[in-house]
Nucleic acid binder design. Sequence first.
DNA 1: CTGTTAACCTGAGTGC
DNA 2: TGCACTCAGGTTAACA
Length: 272
Amino acid sequence: MPELPEVETVRRGLEPYVRGRRIARVTVRDARLRWPVPASLAHDAADRRIERIARRGKYLIVTLDSGDRMIWHLGMTGRLLVLDPAQPLVKHDHVDFLLDGDTLIRFHDPRRFGAVLWWSRDENVHPLLAGMGPEPFDPAFDGDYLFRKSRGRSVAVKNFVMDGHIVVGAGNIYAAESLFRAGIRPTRRAGRLTRADCARLADRIREVLAEAIERGGTTLRDFAGADGASGYFQQELSVYGRDGEPCRVCGTLIKGLVLGGRASCYCPRCQR
DNA sequence: CTGTTAACCTGAGTGC
DNA sequence: TGCACTCAGGTTAACA
């Protein structure tokens, strides 16, 4: 479910509720997530104060006053909701963070592709975050960067853009949408992009992600912000999930195909 | 190194 | 109503 805009929406929703708050109790009901929730996490996080919550790619990083951090990831179906502590449990409510006794942050994840991990202050870099590409809004991410990185690469540009080693945060939806706006077919080999293509693509990736954040993300099925509200960017989608429907720009039927094992859509006329 | 595929897991939707 | 089947927003392990 969540790509960068959805994770950022959750981060912004959580921030006012968690910043400066003390963790009274952590309850792990099911530790079997993408990686097991460390057995010591509940004890180690208890009584710590949350200094801030940041985002790196699709990971949320919760810094504690001890200097240790937690890494939260939503996988495909994860939710992090701010709730009243009396909120009844439902299926797939795997981890609770009770703050100062009156605010509950609840991690809910049917498919369990998400993660709740510990990042010790003794570890400078966490293995999951090492080797990640730049943030799309980092000045280091621009057309020149994309051009350099794509030289000699035969992979389809859509898979290239979704590769977290190249740039973080663009998943299946926003990769498709960025390529539409840039007028580039998802099947084009990355190494065949011109300098101008790369400049346009970098700009459109940033643009699409920024607009989606403004709309509170894209809700297709599962996604909800920390307050449980849906996003609205799905109304703005030009190609994702529109296989067989007319292009909003030229009327040509949107084409679907599978790239790197993922469903992809593009307009055969607008994208070359 | 690059590139491709399957795998992890559950639920929703479709067609018979 | 039930069953078999497909697909889903992410990521990585295993392979050629």
